[in-house]
Amino acid sequence: MYHSTKTTRTTMKNEITIGRTAVTPYMLFLLVLVLIPLGLVVYYSFTDTEGGFTFAHFLQFMQGGEALNTFLYSFFIALVTTAICLLLGYPAAYFLSIRVANNPPEKRLAEVMIILYIVPMWINCLLRTLATVELFNILSIPLGEGALLFGLCYDYLPFMIYPIYTDLLKMDMSLLEASADLGANRWQSFWKVVVPLSKRGIYSGIVMVFLPTLSTFAISELLTHNKITLFGSLIQRCFGEGGILMWNYGAALSMIMFVVVFLLEHFSHDEE
């Protein structure tokens, strides 16, 4: 008895050691590529070109002008994209999941359909955007805000559908029967049972669409022929050919974006 306990302990100890060794590369990765750069961003955002401490970049942003307007516009575009994705994605996810759960013979069909929805995620979004641009050119539709919204929705729709779909799939179908049994019609069942039970999926869908669209830059440039600048592009320009002088300001804008994203993420978790 004693002996066996001892062996178990040794094995456990070994496993912990192995575990530690195994995560070391990732820890290094985290340090070099996440923590140090983040530190640098914070450092740059609070310093001027000579390296002195300053709030100037943030004040400049707050005073209005191009940067603030671009930020608000990006926020608006992300909001509209998220809303469209939710409106298109929820019904799709709803019918696919309910169909799978209720009709085992049609399960395969629904599985194929969900894969078709998700297939675009397998292809790099830059390639897809270039293809969208071509599509607009072939159809002679001018690029601009409409094309931008179309492209963003096309790129991010799967990220809305999938979490809602998996959430609804977990739902016990007898709950719908219970709700009907208690007198609810389909519409009441939907609002009082289905929607509350897929809240988690809706939140993660929103986060997965809203946050990346807020910081997107390449898509907006390609789909609008550089006519519309989003916040992501603005930051990118600070580090682009414009020159080294803008790094501190760019870092400050990145910090602002980081804080906004952090807060949104934080609130959405609170809601859950």
């Binding site: 016990d172 029967e177 009907a180």
Partner: peptide, 19 residues
């Protein structure tokens, strides 16, 4: 339809609304 019937059901796995 079930929502218009004056009968109520106690389900095998209860089917209580978890939310």
């Amino acid at each position: 339809p079930p929502n218009k019937r004056p009968v109520n059901t106690v389900f095998q796995k209860y089917a209580l609304f978890p939310h």
